[in-house]
């Protein structure tokens, strides 16, 4: 650390890429074992290794950035690009499920009775819980912007309140989705409708849960004053991700819930 002749962050050696790779392999095998043998033990172990890796790897990054000051403006720019590319890859991930949905629904096969929704399927009314969920996610987009502006103005109390509200709205959305899944009159095994519906909305729900955890970590870091008005990229990345999840929901609502019913 004697002389800083470049603005880059040369990371120290770390075991987490190795444990991460290990957990990915175990996760794959655990899923297969679960699917074929109905035995979730290996999957549980894999989830545990994944969780431990995530906690420790990101803990290291928080130490490197907040407590060691290794994140110069150039390092932050790299993190921004990384997050942008990650979200682009997520957009393509969801594009594939929308493709599957439109492929099946724009020209429904004769096995579905040449109609969409297929005969025998009674879809949800889009103007009940799905519309409420739309309102919830749009409001959470407002509260997270409120939180961001409070951080930029160094208004700690309001940033905490606004972020807390955002997390609560995320949890509210997840519980409403869970309720609706529970009440659903069709299953993932009910024709291309059930498959495209539950795969698309299910992966979206998973992303809401991931986004809520990301925001919760930001909330804890905010409580411990990790963010400054000029440097809070961890929060910004979570906000980008949250907006992305929000926009995906709008497309899901309009095409699958509304047009598709």
């Amino acid at each position: 650390m004697a002389k800083h002749t470049h603005p880059f962050h040369m990371v120290d050696q770390s075991p987490w890429p190795l444990t991460g790779a290990l957990s990915a392999l175990t996760l794959t095998m655990g899923l297969i074992k679960w699917f074929h043998k109905m035995n979730p033990n290996l999957l549980m172990l894999a989830m545990f290794i994944t969780l431990v890796t995530m906690i420790q790897w990101w803990r290291d990054i928080i130490r490197e950035s907040t407590f060691q000051g290794n994140h110069t403006s150039i390092v932050m720019s790299g993190l921004r690009w990384g997050m942008i590319l990650f979200i682009v890859s997520e957009i393509l991930f969801f594009a594939s499920f929308f493709w599957a949905f439109f492929h099946s629904s724009l020209s429904p096969s004769i096995e579905l009775g040449s109609s969409w929704p297929p005969s025998g399927i009674s879809p949800f009314n889009p103007f009940q819980i799905p519309l409420l969920n739309t309102a919830i996610l749009l409001s959470s987009g407002v509260t997270i912007t409120w939180a961001h502006h409070s951080i930029m103005e160094n208004n700690h109390p309001q940033s905490l309140q606004a972020l807390f509200l955002t997390i609560i709205l995320g949890l509210y959305f997840t519980s409403l989705q869970a309720w609706e899944y529970w009440e659903a009159p069709f299953s993932i095994a009910d024709s291309a409708y059930g498959t495209t519906f539950f795969v698309a909305t299910g992966f979206h729900g998973l992303h809401v849960i991931i986004g809520t955890s990301f925001l919760s970590i930001c909330f804890i870091r905010l409580m411990f004053f990790h963010f400054s008005p000029n440097h809070h990229f961890g929060f910004e990345a979570a906000a980008w991700y949250w907006h992305f999840v929000d926009v995906v929901w709008l497309f899901l609502f309009i095409s699958i819930y509304w047009w598709g019913s």
Partner: peptide, 13 residues
């Protein structure tokens, strides 16, 4: 705001 951020930062940053 810049002063707060400066006080908050450490290290190479």
């Amino acid at each position: 705001v810049d002063t707060f951020s400066m006080e908050h930062a450490t290290g190479l940053e």
